[in-house]
Structures are given as structure tokens and as C-alpha cells.
């Protein structure tokens, strides 16, 4: 048997639900209803602070995500740049080799021309032509060897350049990743600290709202208990049980942990 109709529905209060600020509203009978207003004010405050914490968490989460994406983008740019440099150095090397080869071909042409010249004067001055042709071949050979040396030098230089750029790329990569990680780690630590501050602010506000509500209700319950005890036939024990349970739930170590 339920005690005195416990759980019986009361008349629906004529007040707005979830009013952001406490306003004394009236029931359908026109009577001021502090109890409902107080309950609504506490509920609205709890909802507001809970929503504030959720918004903060969302903001910090999306902020860190945005920074992480930006960091990746920045590092990608940093890493892509030296790779382009490597390509440029390789192109330079290829151009140097091509140039050396052209020089070589030019030298060979000079040699051939000298040889041809030697042949041309062969008829008129045979002995002399032999010397000239010999000189022409020597010139051609010398120029060709020189050109080959230039080509080898150019290739070696280009190779060293590529190696140097490769080394610079690795350094730049390491530097960029290290810098990116440091920036994100610092931001993350800052955000974590703010999230903790937000959580503490939420708990503090929640506990204050709860304590204010408990204090008011405890006072009302004591007062109503006093009135009920003066009435005959009231099952006081059951009210005491409910009241004690409420007080138990409202202890700081239970409700505000």
C-alpha cells in the first residue's frame, strides 16, 4: 500500500519550462508557485552549465583537429619543397652532361675539320700536309679529351649537388616534423589544461546549484515534517525514510564527487 498516495500526479503547473532565468510564474489558479519556479530555475541552470561544457569540449576538439590538419599541410609544404630542389639539381646535372657531350661533339668536329684541311693541302705539299694532318688529329684528340674531362667534372659536380640537396632534404624534413610536433604538442597541452579548467568550473557550478537546491528543499522538508507531525494518523516513518534517503543522496561525498 503506497503511503498517502505517494507519486500522485500534481496539477500541471502553469509555468514555462526551461526558463533561462527564474521568474515567479503563476499556476492556473493564479497563485504564485515558488516551488516549481525554483525547480525550473535549478534545472535551467544545470542544463546551461552542462551545455556550456559540451560546447567547450566541442570547440577544443575541433580547434585541435583544425590545427593538426594545418600542421600536416605545413609539413607537406615543407617536405615538398626540398624534393622539388632535388629534381632541379638532377635537371642541372643532366644539362651539364648534355653540355659536355655537345662540347665533345664540337671538338670532334674541329678535329675532323683539321684533318680535312690537312687532306686538302696534301696535293700541294705532301710532306707538310702530313704534319698538318697530324697536328689536326692531335688538336681534335686534345679537344675531345678536354671535353670528356669537362663532362666528367660536370657529372660529378651534379652528383655532389644532388647528394648535398638530398642531405638538406632530410634535414629539412626532420626540422619540419620536429617543429610541427612541438607546435601541436604545445597547443594540445594548452587545450587539455583549458578542458580541465572547464570541467572544474562545471563541477563547481553544478555543485553550487545542487547545494542551493538541497538547502532550500531540506529547509522545506524539515518545515513540512514539523507540520505533518502535528497531524494525527500520519505515517511519519515513511516520510522519514524518504527524507533520509534524500539527505543521504545529497551528502557532498555522494552527490558532488
Amino acid at each position: 500500500m503506497a503511503f498517502f498516495g505517494l507519486g500522485k500526479k500534481k496539477e500541471a503547473p502553469g509555468v514555462e519550462v526551461a526558463a533561462p532565468k527564474a521568474e515567479i510564474s503563476k499556476t492556473e489558479t493564479g497563485k504564485l508557485n515558488y516551488e516549481d519556479v525554483g525547480r525550473q530555475r535549478a534545472a535551467a541552470a544545470k542544463e546551461a552549465i552542462s551545455s556550456g561544457l559540451t560546447s567547450l569540449r566541442d570547440k577544443l576538439g575541433s580547434g585541435l583537429g583544425w590545427l593538426a590538419r594545418k600542421a600536416e599541410s605545413a609539413v607537406y609544404g615543407a617536405l615538398a619543397a626540398p624534393e622539388i630542389t632535388v629534381d632541379a639539381a638532377k635537371a642541372t646535372g643532366r644539362a651539364a652532361v648534355a653540355g659536355a657531350e655537345a662540347v665533345g661533339r664540337g671538338a670532334a668536329a674541329v678535329g675532323h675539320e683539321a684533318a680535312a684541311y690537312g687532306s686538302a693541302i696534301k696535293a700541294g705539299a705532301y710532306e707538310m700536309a702530313s704534319d698538318v694532318r697530324s697536328v689536326g688529329y692531335d688538336v681534335a684528340t686534345g679537344v675531345k679529351h678536354g671535353a670528356e674531362a669537362v663532362g666528367r667534372g660536370a657529372v660529378a659536380g651534379a652528383k655532389r649537388s644532388v647528394e648535398a640537396v638530398g642531405s638538406a632534404t632530410a634535414f629539412a624534413k626532420e626540422k619540419a616534423i620536429g617543429a610541427k610536433d612541438a607546435v601541436i604538442a604545445t597547443a594540445e597541452r594548452g587545450y587539455q589544461s583549458l578542458q580541465e579548467r572547464g570541467r572544474q568550473a562545471y563541477e563547481s557550478a553544478r555543485n553550487r546549484v545542487e547545494a542551493a537546491k538541497d538547502s532550500f528543499n531540506n529547509w522545506r522538508n524539515e518545515r513540512n515534517m514539523q507540520k505533518a507531525s502535528e497531524l494525527l494518523g500520519v505515517n511519519r516513518d515513511q516520510i522519514v525514510l524518504l527524507k533520509r534517503f534524500l539527505e543521504d543522496l545529497g551528502r557532498p561525498e555522494n552527490a558532488n564527487a
Binding site: F3, F4, L6, K8, E35, N217, N221, N224, L231, L242
Partner: peptide, 19 residues
């Protein structure tokens, strides 16, 4: 707590004890 308080208020109201 809110629900128990409501039940308690209703219990008081049922025996004619109101704020």
C-alpha cells in the same frame, strides 16, 4: 533526488501539508 523530492512533496500535499 529531484524525483524523490517530488514524491515527498506529493506525500506532504496528500495529507494537507503544503508550503
Amino acid at each position: 533526488k529531484d524525483k524523490i523530492q517530488k514524491a515527498l512533496d506529493d506525500a506532504f500535499a496528500a495529507v494537507g501539508v503544503t508550503d
